[in-house]
């Protein structure tokens, strides 16, 4: 159950960022952007919680990888700058998808 929830949330987080980047941020009314950004924030928060919860499963390497995935939104947020935002947004989306794939194929 936890595994399925994590996969859904990670893919949902990735897709909301893509949709936000393409159709919402800077394109819609501030109220819509604010509510949408808050939703993405909530999903990212939930993603981290689930990733930490997933650390109860698998071996030591799996736990370490899940910890990195759990912290990735904040690590990326720490190092990203205005100039590198496109690159790091792409990196964040890839990491979210990779984490889902990792749980599907590697975590027992």
């Amino acid at each position: 159950m936890l595994k399925i929830m994590f996969i859904i949330i990670s893919l949902l987080a990735a897709s909301t960022i893509v949709i936000g980047k393409l159709f919402i941020f800077g394109r819609q009314k501030p109220v819509i952007v604010g509510n949408y950004a808050a939703s993405v924030g909530a999903i990212l928060g939930l993603y981290s919680i689930l990733a930490i919860a997933m650390m109860t499963q698998g071996g030591y390497l799996d736990k370490l990888v899940m910890l990195i995935f759990a912290l990735s939104p904040y690590l990326i947020g720490k190092i990203v700058t205005y100039r590198s935002i496109k690159l790091f947004t792409l990196m964040q989306i890839i990491l979210l998808i990779l984490s889902a794939l990792f749980v599907i194929y590697c975590v027992d």
């Binding site: 950004a37 990212l44 947004t89």
Partner: peptide, 11 residues
């Protein structure tokens, strides 16, 4: 969460 992730550049 918004401030410590990439979201801060979009909102």
């Amino acid at each position: 969460i918004g401030l410590s992730t990439i979201l801060r550049f979009y909102y």
